[in-house]
Design a protein around this nucleic acid. Structure first.
Lengths: 245, 245
DNA sequence: TAATCTAACTGGTAGTGACCACACTACCAC
DNA sequence: GTGGTAGTGTGGTCACTACCAGTTAGATTA
């Protein structure tokens, strides 16, 4: 990573500065709870205006790397799990962060007419067909979850099972093929009990407790792009979130 | 709510402007997906510099009220549940938002020596005593959760059961009495089954599925102030979160 | 000694002015 | 029609400046 600001770099200076500072924190060059250089010092150190400095610091603060104290200074956050900040993660990203090998079995990939409730969440007209993908999610080669995705793609857009097989990450396909970047999601979590079919697929007993997650995913323009329902095995999955005011 | 910016007001201008704009959105004066006045127009409308305008808009954007599109404008977010943004909420706030009448039964309020695991999460030395509050949480007068809080207060700080009874909200006491403002939390959720004692307290069958939430709450200065464990009745509670990248 | 004041820091708010990157439209040339 | 192009409006980035508001430590004073 660069150690100085390059004014000819295409990246904005505040992003360059933010990543320099982030690096120093992640490398442990600056101890938790210790102050980073003051804004006036950074101005001189990197030859950047305070406006830009503050913008970089704002970013790092919102990402939880540092915190400010009026009149005292700006300090490194003492957090252990910086990587698992409040972030929107795909299933595979999620598992990788926990050190578990993700995997999946694609059960089906078809165009379906979904229930009205789901069409409403996707803000689609009644009668619209959407792409439905059913998958069994694996962690270290054993089932952890049962996932059903409904995707609101444009007429001329579709995804093949080959693409799903080879890429592994639906979100990566959305991003690379259609330039759709997931940016926000509403999620609910509740407890249910496994039906016979679900129990069979997850290799657990009928009536075993499951964690049910339902999520509506929004793109950059705030349009809903996916409704996804995941049934997690209660004994093998723990949900993690970071909340902020 | 004020309709113009008052330069003599103690509140910063960008906060005044943000609340004016928020009001217009909540009142429906500006339709979802329609553009709000451009930054240059707002400059003239409210006689404020663009710096300040952008700061106000930044705030509203992070709170999910609006979104920006480079080259096109700034638009009102089409969100139905503005109130239940990704927010850190207390149990009572949470229920009120869902239209349920919160209540509680305080089972105990004592100084205890907690398990080492909890002391570690609170970043306290082994052997430290903390305030422990056990409560049964009610929704519309029937039990929905079993909550155990461990509070890392200073030597001279404590909370009485009278205060808990009268206020109802622990977070309000923390804020008003000790000036501690909860600002962040790490939370995990998983599924467990009710022990006989838990089943009895929650008035459900032994072995019924529960949603177990464990949360570490941090103050403004990033110091942990509370470890709280809540067992929710699986049949009466649903967890909601909004995730952002 | 203890309380007070002061100066020199820190981050917080605000204005001005400039230029860039992107989106849209109207117009023109082919 | 099609493709280009210039103009104008939008948000994005950046510099420089000024002053306000907390915090701290050291000097000063009672």
């Amino acid at each position: 990573m660069s150690r100085t600001i390059d004014p000819y770099n295409a990246l904005p200076k505040y992003i360059q500065l933010a990543s320099i500072l982030r690096q120093k924190i992640e490398d442990g060059e600056w101890e938790p709870r210790s102050p980073i250089p003051s804004e006036r010092q950074l101005e001189v150190l990197y030859n950047i205006s305070r406006t830009t400095i503050r913008e970089a610091i704002d970013h790092l603060m919102r990402q939880g790397y540092i915190y400010r104290e009026h009149g005292r200074g700006t300090f490194v956050s003492p957090q252990k799990l910086q990587k698992t900040l409040m972030e929107l993660t795909s299933f595979s990203e999620d598992l990788i962060k926990r050190g578990i090998q993700p995997g999946q079995i694609i059960r089906s990939l078809t165009s379906v007419l979904p229930p009205v409730k789901i069409l409403q969440k996707l803000e689609l007209a009644p009668g619209t067909h959407v792409l439905c993908i059913e998958r069994i999610r694996l962690g270290d080669n054993t089932p952890i979850g049962l996932q059903t995705s409904y995707l609101a793609l444009a007429e001329n857009q579709t995804i093949t099972s080959e693409e799903m097989e080879s890429s592994g990450s639906l979100y990566r396909i959305l991003q690379e093929k259609f330039n759709i970047i997931p940016s926000e999601a509403d999620e609910t979590l509740e407890v249910t009990l496994a039906t016979p079919e679900e129990a069979d697929l997850l290799q657990i007993a009928e009536g075993a407790p499951l964690l049910l997650s339902e999520r509506v995913l929004f793109a950059q323009n705030r349009k809903p792009i996916e409704f996804v329902k995941i049934l997690y095995r209660g004994d093998r999955y723990r949900y993690y979130a970071r909340l902020t005011r």
